[in-house]
């Protein structure tokens, strides 16, 4: 098996770094946006509900790659020329990839949070009210803590998918791990080595996320808490 030079290995690590940053940035944006979507969806206004439902349906039914392309190739047309040139000078690939990934994930994250909230019976709310809780207090102490527990497993697998989907950003030239892997493979033809290392790097990432997820689940599990006390 052909070994990589230190420089080539370094390049892969830089790719991994970009992958992780892209993941973190889009996950934070996705989560924040999802919270907004959930709140907007909960309002009484039919127009708000339609908007959110449409948003979610679009992002669930169009491939992520197409969403990324739409942002990178299509959207700049709507921007004023100077903004466009500024963007192209400032890592537009990364920005558009992050936006597309965040929007795509937010639709799913919002649905996960919403179904968690819906799983909490209204009687919990009544019980809190009967003790004198205001709406916000009931949500904060009673409903949200329980809903988050229910939403945790789907949110973890959603984060996992997002991490893996950052690889799609290579299609518009973001120099993340998959992109670098292809590049080095092209230059050196050390196919197995390069792809092997990249695969291991991805596995380290996903397994770390999985471990973190089950640590969180364990920590918030009720019977475990009871035993610890």
């Amino acid at each position: 098996m052909d070994l990589l030079t230190a420089d080539q290995f370094q390049q892969l690590l830089w790719g991994m770094r970009t992958t992780i940053i892209l993941f973190a940035v889009s996950w934070v944006m996705a989560f924040a946006l999802a919270l907004v979507l959930v709140v907007v969806r909960a309002t009484e206004y039919r127009l708000c509900r339609w908007f959110v439902d449409g948003f979610v349906a679009y992002h669930r039914n169009v491939p992520l790659l197409v969403q990324v392309m739409f942002w990178y190739f299509g959207m700049p047309e709507l921007l004023p020329e100077n903004v466009r040139f500024w963007l192209y000078d400032h890592n537009a690939e990364f920005s558009f990839a992050a936006i597309a990934l965040a929007l795509g994930s937010s639709a799913y994250v919002a649905e996960d949070i919403r179904s968690g909230l819906r799983a909490i019976p209204n009687t919990q709310f009544e019980a809190a009210s009967s003790l004198g809780c205001s709406y916000l207090q009931s949500m904060r102490y009673i409903v949200v803590p329980q809903a988050l527990r229910i939403s945790l497993p789907p949110l973890v697998s959603r984060a996992l998918l997002l991490f893996k989907n950052t690889s799609i950003a290579m299609a518009i030239g973001v120099a993340e791990l998959t992109y670098r892997t292809r590049e080095i493979e092209n230059m050196t033809f050390k196919t197995f080595t390069v792809f092997g290392i990249a695969t291991v790097l991805y596995l380290i990432g996903t397994f770390t996320l999985m471990a973190f997820g089950s640590w969180l689940e364990n920590r918030t599990r009720l019977d475990r808490k009871a035993a610890a006390k």
């Binding site: 919990q124 009544e126 019980a127 009210s129 004198g132 205001s134 803590p145 009720l222």
Partner: peptide, 22 residues
């Protein structure tokens, strides 16, 4: 109402304890 509800205890048919609290 929230102030007032502190002056009247309520016991539900299905208990409605908070399952995430001891």
């Amino acid at each position: 109402l929230n102030q007032l509800r502190q002056k009247v205890g309520f016991v539900f048919q299905h208990f409605n304890l908070f399952p995430h609290m001891s």
